[in-house]
Simulated assay, not measured.
Amino acid sequence: MLHGLVPVPVHWRKVKCGKDRCKRCPHGPYPYLRVKKEGRWRWKYLGKGWQPPEGFTRAGEFRERLARYRRIVERLVELREKLGELERGLRL
């Protein structure tokens, strides 16, 4: 159900250009992916013109939706337990 909402793990980073006298550093933000390569985490630059795919869900929005989903599931479990107690009470 939630797999369609999973965000692309894109990080918007500001980076230094490496010039000694650059007064505008850091530059950006630029889109990067954090990928594991040869057992170490690396940053992969996505390119200047990168655009999020259609239906892209931002990480913050995804976390909010996931938290709401978990609260709903917790409430359903509580209601099922209460319903079970009521059913047992009616059988007596």
Rank of each mutant, 00 (worst) to 15 (best):
M1E: 11
M1W: 09
L2A: 06
H3C: 08
G4Y: 11
V6W: 06
P7W: 02
P7K: 02
P7G: 00
V8A: 08
P9E: 11
W12Y: 04
K14Y: 07
K19V: 05
D20G: 05
D20Q: 08
R21S: 07
C22M: 05
R24K: 12
C25Q: 08
P26S: 05
P26L: 06
G28V: 09
Y30H: 06
R34S: 04
R34V: 08
V35N: 05
K36G: 02
K36N: 04
K37Y: 03
K37L: 05
K37C: 02
W41C: 00
W43S: 00
K44G: 01
Y45S: 00
K48P: 10
W50M: 06
Q51F: 13
Q51D: 13
E54M: 15
E54C: 10
R58L: 11
E61L: 13
E61D: 14
F62T: 11
F62S: 09
E64H: 11
E64D: 15
R65P: 08
R65L: 13
R65F: 10
L66N: 09
R68E: 15
R68N: 12
Y69E: 13
R71T: 10
I72Y: 12
I72D: 14
I72W: 14
R75C: 06
R75T: 12
L76Q: 12
L76A: 09
R80P: 03
R80M: 11
L83E: 11
G84H: 12
G84Q: 14
L86V: 10
E87Q: 07
R88V: 09
G89Q: 12
R91S: 11
